[in-house]
Each structure stands twice: as C-alpha cells, then as structure tokens.
Write a protein that binds this DNA or RNA. Structure first.
Lengths: 380, 380
DNA sequence: TTGAAAGCGCTAACAA
DNA sequence: TTGTTAGCGCTTTCAA
C-alpha cells in the first residue's frame, strides 16, 4: 500500500538558472582575489621566499628571530601554501588514492569496507595527506582511475578488495607506485599488504558450531578468486575435518559478498540439504540476508539452524536473533594500511612488509545450542 | 566463550625493515624516470607545446593533420598530463572536497551516507573530477580540513550532515568557495542544497501507523539542531494531529542517528509509556537498534509495537521482522549534489539552486496491524 | 591556426 | 644560516 508516486522525482526549487545571474561565466577555478604567496610573506617579514619556505616546511633550521617574524607575517596575511605549486616543485602530491575495486554499490554499503576506510582516513590524518577516493563500478572507471594514478601522481595507492583478475596491482608495481593491498594478492607479487588470518577465523566459527552439536554445516562463501574467500573455505573444511565430518560440495554456495546472492545461496542450500543444522556465512551482511531466508522457510534460528557470520560489523547486532560472528579489527587494519603505505612512500626500495591481523569470535544468539535457549552473549 | 586472545594484535610478517633495503632514502615522491611532458610530445609531433596543450584540452581548433600527429605522439609516448602543473597554471584543481561533518565512526557506517557518497562519485565520474574525502571526527580535523579547503583549492565543496553550529558553510560562502549542502542550512544562507521532503515522509510513516490502528505512537528523532530532524518531528506531529491524537513530550526521545543512543531512547520510551503501540524512528540503523530493545523487553513486533524506520537502506530488509521504512533516493541525491556543485563552479554568480526530493513509504512486516499477521510486502 | 614567452607558487640546489 | 637562481609542466596571452 501507499507510496508517493512522485517519489524520487526531484522537485526543483527556487530561482532557476539565468534568473539574474550573468549568462555564462565559465570562470571555473580559484576565486577572484589573488592568493597570498610566499613572496608576499617574505616581503612583509623582510626575508627571501626560500626562508619562508623553510619555516613553513620545517626543512632546515632558521634563526629564531626570523622564524618569529615570518610566523607573524604568515598569520597576518593568512598565508596558506598552494598545494599544486608545491606538488609541482617537490614532485609529490601529498595525497594517496584509495581504490575500491568492486561492484561499488554493494561494497560501499558494506560496513566492513566503510570501517576500513575510516581507519585509513585516521591513519592519514596526522600527516596532512589527503585521501582520494576512487570507486570503480565500471570498466570505464577503471581506465579513468588508471590514468589518474599514472598521470596525476598520487604518492601511493591503497587497493581494497581486488580479485585475482585485477591487473592494477601488477601494473602499479611495475610503474613503481607505492602500493598496499587489503588482503594478500592472488598471484605471487612482491607487495605490501594487510591480511587477516581468515583460515583460523573460519575455523573458530565452524568449530563453535560443531561444539554446539551441529553436524550438518553449510557455508556461504565469497568469490573464490579472492584469497580471503579461499582461506575462509579452508578454515571451514579444517574444522569439519577436525570434527570427523566430511565436506561435500553440496554444502557450499557462493554469495560473493552480495546479500541478494547470499539469499539465493541460502535457499539453494536448504533445498539441497534438508537436514542442515548450521551455516557459516562469510560476511555479516550476507548472513543477515541468509537469516531472512531461513526465517521465511519456517525454520528457527538457532533451534533449527545455527548461523555464524563474519566481520563483526554493527549489522551483527542488529539482526534478530543477534548474530554470532567473527570480528576483524577493520579500523585498525585501515590504519595499518595507511601506515604501511606511508612507509613505502618513504622507503620505496625497502622490501614490502605484511601485517597479519587475527580475529575474534563473538558469540551471540544465532548460534545457540539446538533445542536449548541461546545463552545470551554480553553484547559489547 | 572462545576468542583468540591475541585478537587484533597484528602479527608482523616477513622481512622487517632494514633487512636489505638501503637504510634511509626519503625519496618521497615521483618515481625515478622523468615523466613525459607536453614538450616531448610536441617535439615528436613537430609542433609547439602550446599546440599540444590545445589538442589535449580541446580548447581551440587545431588543424586536423596536426591534431592527428599529436594524438599519435601522445599514444606513442603514453603521455598523461600532470595535474599539479595544470592546476598551477590554470588555477583550478579539478577536484572537489566532500566533507562528512559528523562523528565519523557512525556516519561512515551508516549506509545512507555511503550511498550518498556513491551517488556523488557517480555524478562526478564523467568529468574527471576527483573526490577528496574529508572526515571530521575531531576538532583538529576540522581545522585541517578548513586549511585544506582554503589553501589548497578544491574547486568546490559538498558538505554532508552539518549541524546548526557548523561554521563551515558560512565561512566557505564568504570565501567564495562553491558549496552544496545536503539538507538545507539551519541558518538562512544563500547556498545551493539538496533536500528531502522529510515532513511529508514522516507524515506518511506515522499516518501509516495510525491507519494500522496504533494510538500511542512514539518517535526517536535525530539531533534537533538539524533541520531534517525537525522536519521529521513536524511531520510526525502533523500526522498525530490529523488523527486527533496529541503529541506529548514524553513520546519523543533523541537518538541522534546513533544506534546505541537510539537503543537507550527506546528503553526510555518503553518505561515512560507502557501502553506504547507504535514508534517512528528517524533512521533505519536506529530503528534496527530499537527493534532489538523491543524484543529484549519481551514485546512482539508488530503485534505489540509497530515500527517504522527511515532511509530505505538495505538495513531495513535485514531486520526481522523486515522493517517498514521511508525511502530517500540517496544515490540520486548524491548525483544531484555533484551536478549542482559543478554548476556552481561553472557559474559562481548565478543564484544557488535547490532540489527537493520526495520520499516513498515502503511497507514491510514491522508495521503490520496489531494482533493480525503482517501482510507481507513485496520485497523489491 | 600556430608559436613564443611569460608566468602559476613553490622547492631545492648552489653560493655566499 | 640566508639569499639567489633555476626550474617543476602546464596554460594562456600576445604576435605572427
């Protein structure tokens, strides 16, 4: 029922174009008034522009008196350095690119990705380095991004969520662009990255299901051309094996981190496996979708089917029942990626480092023992 | 139970610093090889750099033969313009800043914000304009951002989620920086913005609750120094009034778009109003949190309490029961913001325009009639 | 239509 | 420690 049928149709308001404004200015770019430059500051302080530059950049010592005079002049004039000029002269941009190389619409609404982003921003903020966000929803965008990176000289790139087929890492390495990946590369590349011990994370999750008495445990995994997806699948198998259970192909289905696909996957799993009593899902958003499907099938969580998600995003607390999940320290990971990148920018020829984070199982309601009431987890 | 107690402790892997790398390079900045410049292209094509520039920018006509020769040379050399140089000479940056002026950790994991961001990115991508993301979690960040905008010359700014106290809009306008706001400003400012008819959106939501037979309807609202929060509250009151119900202060509680706060708010509402049978919540993420609290209180949704959220994010489909919500066309809004900003950059002295979007009520399970089974909504 | 020349504002040798 | 001097690579008058 109901719904405004004008929905989404913008209503344009107010003085439309050309009402009073001069017809065509095309004066893109900086505002009229000439900017204050180093020369202006130098003149006011009675020193040369280079000395001012030295003060501004703290590059080499300047006598206290001059420094003070210069600082006063800077305040007085409200001088702010022009980044373009600085970039041009110094041959660096003081900005880094973050490429989100995924079907953007979904990745960007995945809280895990956004938390990572926040971490990166935090890791960068001390150094006055700007974050240039590049999303690659389409092939054309990829080319645009590639051009941008090659030409415009971001000082480095953080690549989030790349698949095996992604040519970008290899290209950037060849071009000598400092690079950090989220997750180790599919191919053997000498590159810095942050990774997570997903194998162990998945194993914890599935062992937990086993410990709760589940015997027939399925999994909804991500795209298998991502090492992280593979790792989780391996961990899942490890746990089954440890419990003396066997993995059957019919117990796995791809959700590719897309909630809609995950819903379908869940349906298929239920069809194929009537005796299913547990499922391990490779992301919280997919798990939430799967829970919906389970509910619609008339099955109860956790009594009939226990569910464990992955990521530890807020989503896992919003589901009912609340979702047991494997937490990745997403924000810390983002911050570490920023750090690694800055490090590579400083020392381009040092060998790339890797940092591996571990995970944490957060037990909530969705994985309670069958037939029993879920033991309530402290919800942190 | 369980949990890797090394959790979140990064494990550092691989050849640590100084293994083989030269101790200190500090060669920040561009990779060794000299970049290809306009001059190189010109030389190869046998023309002057200015002519090459004209071809690259399509600025003024160039004879077909030369153009072709130049284009060939560009391909051959793999020329890519240097943005810093271009910015410096042309006095524009070809980049715009998106300031997210909120407690970052929450805003960035709110899917509504991220969808808006995606829309902005889409709206920009055709024009090769870069999006510089600026998050202002702390006061220091605000200053950094302000410096950046003033000094470094983004061509314009999109400001997301600003409160009444935010000095930035006013400042930027005075400085002549092209600006677009998400949501109209609290103060009377002559500025471009995109807004949503929240008053009507809220009214639809609450009228829907009334139509379902609810008589005692509470609301969890956002920070009231944001016009959008006020509008929703007004719409809520409108609907109550239309139904002959009265608004009591005890029926409102602030959630400030923070799920944790919203949970507390919900608890307080339940305490204050034992006979509560409906609640309108100003965002989906807050609604999800509120639903959790309702469930913990032993009440059923929608039988005991009907819930309607706001935003129309994927979150609303992930809750159980699924959440009735008011959809904002977030991505379209973002795209429109980008368009408006580009327009202002082109025509700085034209009067700022406003675009108002309308909303759409999406009925799902959480608002079913009391005592009855919820009529299942088609889940689009 | 094309080229020459003068910067854009800054950094970084080099000299003093 | 400070100043002088070249550019960084591009756009954009101005002349031709």
């Amino acid at each position: 029922m109901a719904s405004d049928d004008a929905a989404s149709q913008p209503r344009v308001d107010g003085r439309a174009d050309g009402a009073g404004g001069s017809a065509s200015e095309k004066r893109r770019g900086r505002r009229g008034d000439r900017a204050v430059t180093l020369v202006d500051v130098g003149r006011l302080a009675g020193v040369s522009p280079s000395t001012v530059s030295r003060v501004v950049n703290n590059s080499i010592p300047v006598s206290p008196e001059l420094r003070e005079a210069i600082e006063r002049a800077i305040m007085l004039l409200g001088y702010v350095p022009n980044r373009a000029a600085r970039s041009l002269a110094a041959r660096r941009s003081d900005s880094i690119g973050v490429v989100i190389h995924e079907p953007a619409s979904q990745s960007v609404s995945d809280p895990f990705i956004t938390q990572l982003l926040l971490g990166i921003a935090r890791g960068l903020s001390e150094d006055e380095i700007q974050l240039i966000l590049m999303m690659a929803p389409t092939r054309r965008d990829e080319e645009r991004i590639q051009r941008y990176i090659e030409g415009s000289h971001v000082d480095g790139v953080i690549l989030v969520g790349s698949h095996a087929s992604d040519p970008l890492p290899d290209l950037l390495i060849r071009r000598g662009v400092p690079l950090v990946l989220s997750g180790r590369p599919a191919a053997k590349l000498d590159v810095a990255y942050v990774d997570v011990d997903h194998r162990n994370g998945a194993m914890m999750a599935v062992s937990h299901l086993v410990a709760g008495g589940r015997r027939r445990i399925a999994t909804i995994h991500g795209a298998l051309d991502m090492p992280s997806s593979r790792d989780k699948l391996d961990g899942y198998c490890d746990a089954l094996a440890a419990a003396g259970l066997v993995y059957e192909p019919g117990l796995g289905a791809a959700g590719n981190y897309n909630p809609a696909l995950a819903g379908n996957a869940m349906r298929a799993l239920l069809d194929r496996n009537p005796s299913l009593d547990g499922v391990f899902v490779a992301s919280d958003t997919m798990a939430a979708a799967a829970m919906g499907v389970i509910g619609e099938a008339g099955l109860r969580i956790p009594e009939d089917i226990a569910v464990v998600g992955y990521d530890g995003t807020p989503v896992a607390m919003a589901t009912r029942p609340t979702l047991t999940t494997v937490r990745q320290p997403s924000e810390a990971m983002g911050q570490e990626m920023a750090r690694l990148l800055l490090e590579r920018i400083e020392h381009p020829s040092a060998p790339p480092r890797h940092v591996i984070f571990s995970t944490e199982l957060i037990v909530r309601e969705s994985s309670g023992s069958p037939g029993c009431h879920a033991s309530r987890a402290r919800d942190r």
